[in-house]
Design a protein around this nucleic acid. Structure first.
Length: 768
DNA sequence: GAAGCCCACATTTTT
DNA sequence: TGTGGGCTTC
């Protein structure tokens, strides 16, 4: 009891109300930084404290990481090991677990494996090819999206084919055969004993729809259902939750409509907006006090988001210190933007603000990271980029996982294709093609055909048949051994006996070495997984168990170097749910943020706006927003206009200029342009009111003349180029009457420039 | 069957 | 710019 009182004291009034309320469906509308996770955590802890057994509680999150963290927090609140037995995890991992158990009911085998996005894509590509369709018309990415949307809307390939509206639509937009592709895709997945991510949810719905007894069982099992990030659930997820709670009506969902940023993946904000129509007797709790950010940051974010329509009315406020206004910085190019951000971070770190790890740079697209990385590196600022290439996306990791998948489920076509000739064993493309053709023709899985090619009339020469036989025997041995061995031993055996180890060790290149390390890392992860499970009481941890875990993992889930002092670089999407003392949001330009793709749709535009809202509200103490006037994109320089979102925000919370003095004093910041825009959304291009040190101007005013020929230039002179910055001339040359300069740029190294176009200015003459 | 070359291409991505 | 896919070549 004491313990309970202590933790209830840690909540504010509305938080506590939400935690204590037990009268039916609850919706917690939680503004950014208002303690959403806290409420969820305490709610679960409270339920446990009230005597509800943990295995009756289902808590659904959006990431494995969120689930893990919440579990840990609950464990430390309740102080016992009850948290371990909670059903807490992502929709996908929870229902994967349930579907494996109930596989028979829906006609699958319990060893079915998961196709990740690239597996699906690759399958779709091969289907399009098989059907001899034009992949310009049937663009694989588009097809994949469309299948995903259909599944999210619970439309199976069969119901799709029977849906007149869909058929007519497809005919109208010139993809009449889409339904055939979907059908084949579905068959092939089924034959392979594989489900893609969306299929997991679809099949769960089918399971609950067609098997009332099973549904009843899980309704009884899950007496309390909690959902985090409800604004980002799709229809399939929504329906699963609805079904489970229909009788108990003990549903507790938490979300923030202003932070819905995944509609492009089928998330449907309506699930949340219509909660009160769905449950007329529900209670709605609003968490409006933001504990994370300064007043200025909260106010600025609010002034942005009011421009959106269709929200749940709420007033997010902060009682923290007022804080600084949001700095808006403009720069002349993306390059300078990076320089500016790096300089600011350096400057702030030199001051009292301390650690690099207190800083995050957020951008709209991953492609923006490179230039920022360069700038940070030049300043010797340690950084970490999230979300670029995840551990599990690396080739060698995908290879070893593919082996694991084949051992658990040899029918898994995509995994099989991946490894059948890796390491090379002379089973080439032609052979695989023939096998696959037989596969489709006889409606048999790839493994069935491989084991007996002759029976399926695959025409192969004797040598190939031998090779396939040998391969199959290897896999059969693995499968046999897998019955006895633990996941750990099995994984090691696969690496060793498949020949992967040999191939990778032989490769003496740098990449080879890193591959070796990654494989080691993987084996270590398997070992750790086994050890952990053993500690939790499982005596024999099998490969399938590990695979189940790993198939639904992303790189977000394994932060390693957590406590190192590094600046965080990530997309705004992946920053959701995180917080940093100091946040830089870069690239606030039309066509970038908001994205070009969003411009013709008001809905999409609102989502972009929410995205910026998310970005701003990550900041606790300090926030800066930058935009560039020109940006290098798709191989050329584009002129940019500042984002409309800048003019959405109330100027009272922004600081459009100033604070430049300290940076501008630095001698080496010549490549940084400090525009002081008078922009307030009216004029499309901000004018510089006070050109403090705009580059070109500086040089003109300080009597540095532009040079466009060899006259007056000497080796050793220091010159300035508007995009490349400062550099020293290493050589001059006259080629067929045109003057060329070889310049060693400070940041970019050697470049060869045609003087006529390069518009160099002399910064300093060589002192001879 | 692997390496090399050229061309087209280019959001966001908790699962 | 940089990457990935498809094609050609050895």
């Amino acid at each position: 009891m004491d313990r309970e009182n202590t933790y209830l004291e840690q909540l504010n009034e509305s938080q506590r109300e939400a935690v204590l309320y037990d009268g039916g469906p609850s919706l917690v509308v939680a503004g950014a930084g208002s303690g959403k996770t806290r409420v969820l955590t305490y709610k679960v802890a409270h339920l446990l404290q009230q005597g509800m057994p943990p295995y009756h509680i289902l808590a659904l999150t959006f990431t494995n990481k969120a689930a893990r963290e919440m579990k840990n927090r609950i464990a430390s609140l309740t102080g016992d090991n009850m948290a371990q037995h909670l059903w807490m995890g992502t929709f996908h991992s929870i229902f994967y677990r349930i579907l494996r158990y109930e596989a028979e009911q829906i006609g699958y085998r319990s060893d079915f494996t998961i196709y990740d996005t690239s597996d699906s894509k690759s399958l779709i590509k091969s289907i399009i090819k098989e059907m001899q369709l034009d992949d310009k018309v049937y663009h694989p990415g588009m097809v994949q999206n469309r299948i995903s949307n259909a599944k999210n809307a619970l439309m199976t390939s069969r119901s799709y084919a029977q849906n007149r509206e869909m058929i007519e639509h497809d005919q109208h937009v010139g993809i009449p055969l889409f339904r055939e592709i979907y059908q084949r895709y579905q068959n092939r997945c089924f034959q392979a004993g594989a489900m893609d991510f969306d299929e997991l949810l679809l099949q769960t719905n089918i399971l609950f729809r067609d098997h009332p007894d099973v549904l009843a069982k899980y309704r009884d099992k899950f007496r309390y259902v909690l959902v985090d990030e409800y604004q980002d659930t799709n229809f399939a997820q929504h329906l699963i939750v609805t079904r489970l709670c229909e009788l108990s009506r003990r549903i507790f969902v938490v979300g923030d409509d202003a932070q819905s940023i995944y509609s492009f993946r089928g998330a449907n904000l309506d699930n949340m907006l219509r909660f009160k129509d769905q449950y007329p007797d529900c209670r709605i709790f609003k968490l409006e006090q933001n504990y994370r950010s300064t007043q200025n940051i909260v106010n600025a974010a609010n002034s942005l988001i009011v421009n959106n329509k269709g929200q749940i009315p709420k007033t997010v406020f902060s009682e923290n210190e007022p804080g600084q206004r949001i700095n808006i910085y403009s720069s002349y190019s993306d390059y300078e933007e990076g320089y500016l951000v790096a300089s600011r971070i350096m400057e702030m770190c030199m001051g009292e603000n301390g650690n690099f790890s207190d800083f995050a740079i957020l951008y709209r697209t991953n492609a923006q990271s490179r230039i920022l990385e360069d700038a940070l590196r030049k300043r010797n600022i340690a950084y970490k980029v999230y979300g670029s290439q995840s551990f599990y996306q690396r080739k060698e990791i995908k290879d070893i996982i593919a082996y694991c998948r084949v051992v658990v489920n040899p029918h898994d076509e995509e995994a099989m294709k991946r490894i059948i000739n890796y390491p090379a064993r002379g089973i080439g493309e032609t052979t695989i093609k023939k096998i696959l053709a037989a596969t489709t023709q006889h409606q048999a899985s790839i493994w069935v055909v491989l084991c007996d090619p002759h029976r399926y009339n695959v025409l192969l020469n004797d040598a190939t048949v031998k090779k396939i036989e040998k391969f199959c025997n290897m896999i059969k041995t693995f499968i046999e051994n897998n019955r006895m061995l633990s996941a750990r031993d099995m994984a090691e055996s696969i690496v060793r006996d498949s020949g992967m180890a040999t191939v990778i060790v032989q490769d003496g290149t740098v990449e080879g070495l890193s591959r070796q390390e990654n494989l080691q890392e993987f084996l270590k992860a398997v070992a750790e997984f086994c050890a952990l499970r053993n500690e939790e009481g499982s005596n024999e941890v099998k490969l399938a168990d590990f695979l189940m875990e790993v198939s639904l993992m992303t790189d977000q889930d394994n932060d390693k170097e957590e406590n190192t002092d590094k600046v965080t670089l990530m997309t705004v999407h992946s920053a959701k749910g995180l917080e940093f003392n100091n946040v830089f949001i870069v690239g606030l330009e039309e066509n970038l943020f908001p994205s070009q793709m969003a411009l013709d749709s008001p809905m999409a535009l609102e989502e972009e706006r929410r995205l910026l809202y998310v970005a701003i509200t990550r900041a606790m103490k300090y926030c800066a927003i930058t935009y560039a006037r020109s940006r290098f994109r798709n191989g050329k320089i584009n002129a940019c206009e500042p984002s409309r979102f800048l003019s959405d925000m109330d100027d009272r919370f922004l600081l459009w200029d100033e604070e430049r003095a300290n940076i501008r004093k630095r001698p080496d910041n010549l490549s940084v342009g400090w525009g002081a825009p008078s922009y307030r959304g009216l004029s499309p291009v901000p004018e510089r009111k006070n050109p403090l040190i705009p580059l070109s101007d500086t040089y003109e005013k300080t009597e540095h003349k532009q040079v466009d020929s060899l006259d007056g230039l000497h080796t050793g002179d220091t010159v300035y180029h508007s995009r490349f910055g400062e550099g020293e001339i290493t050589a001059l040359e006259d080629i067929e009457g045109a003057g060329w300069a070889f310049v060693n740029f400070k940041h970019l190294g050697q470049k060869k420039l045609l003087l006529k176009y390069a518009k160099l200015t002399i910064v300093k003459k060589a002192s001879v």
